[in-house]
Design a binder for these strands. Structure first.
Lengths: 112, 112
DNA sequence: TCATCATGCAACCTCCTGGTTGCATGATTG
DNA sequence: CAATCATGCAACCAGGAGGTTGCATGATGA
């Protein structure tokens, strides 16, 4: 049904790309993409940043829908979500397809 | 040879994603992906933004390597470049592949 | 040559971002 | 219960992003 509560113009893939546009977040997402849920402390452990900095990044990823969080006891675990990334992939495919079509038209024109 | 003059850690796809993480830029790129080179004024025409705002966005896209510029007489034309987008696609494929592998391991485990 | 057009450059503004520190709070465990 | 651990929350900060306005400059065309 593709609901979207906020109502308004469809955001499109831009927010997802924006979330991906940071090395730290990209690294966090890459690590999470193995399917394992991890606590904030665990994710912050092998980083040079503060736990709070990592927390902020995780929230950005969560707002973009790329990860989900679940409170377990005293820790909150974050896990990878695949869906929004597919939207991003679809956009790139779209642009690439349009570009390929342009190339094909050019080829056809040159070859007469 | 993949040179990169600045020397230092490989930037990776993050800057490309960052450049894509804005609706205006996404729109500009989509329009340019038909292969046609366009002047700044032409690109700014069907936008509600100022010409200078559009200029800034174009420079961001250019720094990310997603477009190239060429001065022709009194106007400078911007044209789509496909290469960095392939890098972005490669990253998404990588994450997706890792995710799929995780799902497969899970399935195998559940099914005994 | 002169008016016009497309840009470039610079200053300025506001808001968001990435990071930090300090402290409060809810679980865990001995 | 007390010490500890994992988080959450808030304040604060520097710098960058996105936008605007104003003005200078190089090309065009009548």
């Amino acid at each position: 049904m593709e609901q979207r509560v906020g109502a308004g113009p469809a955001p499109g893939p831009a927010p997802v790309f924006a979330a991906l546009g940071d090395r730290t977040r990209l690294s966090l997402l890459t690590r999470l993409s193995d399917g394992e849920a991890r606590s904030i402390a665990m994710l912050a452990a092998d980083t040079k940043l503060t736990r709070q900095a990592v927390t902020k990044h995780l929230h950005v990823l969560e707002r973009a829908g790329l990860v989900g969080s679940l409170r377990v006891g005293r820790e909150s675990r974050f896990a990878y979500r695949a869906t929004p990334l597919d939207e991003a992939r679809a956009y790139l495919e779209m642009v690439a397809a349009q570009w390929d079509a342009a190339l094909e038209r050019l080829r056809a024109h040159v070859e007469g």
